[in-house]
Write a protein that binds this DNA or RNA. Structure first.
Lengths: 332, 332
DNA sequence: TTGAAAGCGCTAACAG
DNA sequence: CTGTTAGCGCTTTCAA
């Protein structure tokens, strides 16, 4: 592989001149520039990112740390991140943390050694220490959903609280008279906000009872189990707002197996807007987060930071949207 | 961040000695070794992968190029790759090629500039030129499913042909009398093999007809459409072997919407073994590929190659397995 | 068993 | 406008 030196030799100039045309830094006679470019062409020269990294402490590589790529929420997010990264000339490293703080920390260390340019955390285990550390070693980062500390963090998330209210309102609109909620792990902020939104929306109804809220694990089986619990406690429920689509699909399975008609006996509304919601029958009504946009925005903000633009260290909150489908479309 | 020089200074030795203990290369007095290690501890020194990369032309980073991470087959595969990579001290870059040869080529170039240690291609657009190029620039690689040329390629795949036969046999076993097939894009080798397996299994039955084979695109909507076509052509079909799970789920949707009972009127068997198959109701019988194992094996072989072990450039073919579920469990 | 020194490929002052 | 030179942090001969 050709190096900058080869180019310089062929073009009959010094390597600094080549470097200048490469980086468009400093003045270069347009005549020599042409020569240099010609040499570059001839040799099919491509600068080494590694050598550049050694000098610059930047590698045009960003990392995406998420809990588990197998969780159907993350592939779409990852796709968005990779799309905007590639477009901007960046490459993306991905890592699964399984929501374990130590794996997260281990990754931060490895990434530092590799002079990674920046990190997107889609995981919820970043703690205050990590943030301080990242700030200290000066690695730009963006957090999805939740920041462990307000200061110095750029956060991208969607409006979970309002989304939950939307869900409940929709269920009421389609005629539900008693609405339950299956909620996710309360260590996860999004799950908490959605639960709050539900409570806020229903607490003044006479049918309201805390036992209408059943815990789940944000996974398929959690939804299945929670639905069972719910059917025993409240056989008369006619609408369920489920904290995420994956659990909603699980709940749907349970109901179908019990021979309960969805939506006519019980309507279901999920949350997230993953493709899975459209794969099941009846298709699942959901509160869709703009998943792709969230990933794209996070990547965008991160790259802006890396390239020195001033980006507000604030929360960028995106709107969610009700997507009505068959699981709440009661027949008259 | 501390450098090797800081360690050398603190330990009172030269940087070459530090390098020796770091790499366990060459003789080092165990006394001095202890000193050096102490210094390393004190300074929390971590060697820079980038500087190492510049010298070694290896970066302990591998790349995984796949068509689209959003396709539910790939997250699990990626997870496996990342798991074994991390365990072995490697980091993984991922890229979506959308099955476009030029994107693939572009990635190869970028990766070369970054001194990536090796590449796994889970995409089917690698062509002979690419392979030759990779060989020329000496980047180790492993291909999933298919190699564009036999020589010099390490390939990991599963036995699609046998899997298809398994599927048909299973449908016959549960009593199906007329079995159709929805197949995937024939540019994709796996799709072709599965189609062959189907043909091979059914061609001698008196009910066999080429019109029982309907094309699909390996996606949800493709399965939905194909099922419609099929129901018009052959309303009397009572079993469908679908080329992949995603299309099988689509086909299932269509049948359910048409009011057809699955499995009693029509049994369905998919192929792949993705989690989606368990999310739908009835759950989908499938020919499961050992997806995780395939990813893990690919990563393993790649790392072996990178580290100079001799690995046969041959096809590593893994067995598939019938996973019977409700979609083929006819009630008696 | 250890150290000095060259070099990996590039960028960035600093002189001209 | 262009060339020289000193690193960036590490590995690897080559001597000692």
């Amino acid at each position: 592989m050709a190096t900058i030196r080869d180019v310089a030799r062929l073009a009959g100039v010094s390597i600094s001149t080549v470097s200048r045309v490469l980086n468009k830094s400093g003045y270069v006679n347009s005549e020599t520039e042409r020569e240099v470019n010609k040499a570059i062409q001839m040799l099919k020269y491509e600068p080494s990112d590694v050598a550049r990294g050694l000098t610059n402490k930047k590698t045009r590589t960003i990392a995406l740390i998420l809990p588990d790529i197998v969780n159907p929420f993350f592939p779409e997010l990852s796709r968005a991140v990779e799309d905007v990264a590639r477009t901007s000339g960046y490459t993306v490293i991905f890592g699964n943390s399984d929501g374990q703080a130590n794996k997260e920390k281990a990754y931060i260390n490895i990434l530092k050694q590799k002079y990674i340019s920046g990190i997107i955390f889609a995981s919820h285990n970043l703690n205050r220490d990590d943030v301080e550390y990242l700030q200290k070693i000066d690695i730009p980062f963006v957090v999805l959903d939740r920041a462990p500390s307000q200061e110095g963090c750029t956060v991208v998330r969607s409006n979970n609280f309002e989304g939950a209210k939307l869900a409940v309102q929709h269920l009421l609109d389609v005629g539900c008279k008693k609405i339950a909620h299956i909620y996710g792990p309360q260590e996860i902020n999004t799950a908490k906000d959605r639960l709050s939104g539900y409570e806020e929306s229903v607490k003044n109804f006479k049918w309201y009872s805390p036992t209408l809220m059943v815990p789940g694990n944000f996974k398929l089986d959690g939804g299945m189990n929670a639905a069972h619990v719910l059917m025993e406690r409240h056989p008369d429920v006619d609408g369920i707002f489920v904290g995420n689509d994956l659990m909603a699909v699980g709940a749907l399975k349970t109901l179908l197996r019990l021979g309960i008609k969805v939506p006519n006996q019980i309507a279901i509304c999920g949350f997230d807007g993953i493709h899975l919601a459209e794969a099941v029958e009846p298709e699942l009504t959901t509160i869709a987060q703009p998943i792709y946009e969230m990933g794209a925005l996070a990547a965008d903000l991160l790259i802006k930071k890396i390239e020195g633009a001033v980006v507000d260290n604030r929360i960028y909150e995106l709107e969610v949207k009700l997507v009505p489908r068959a699981s709440t479309t009661k027949e008259i």
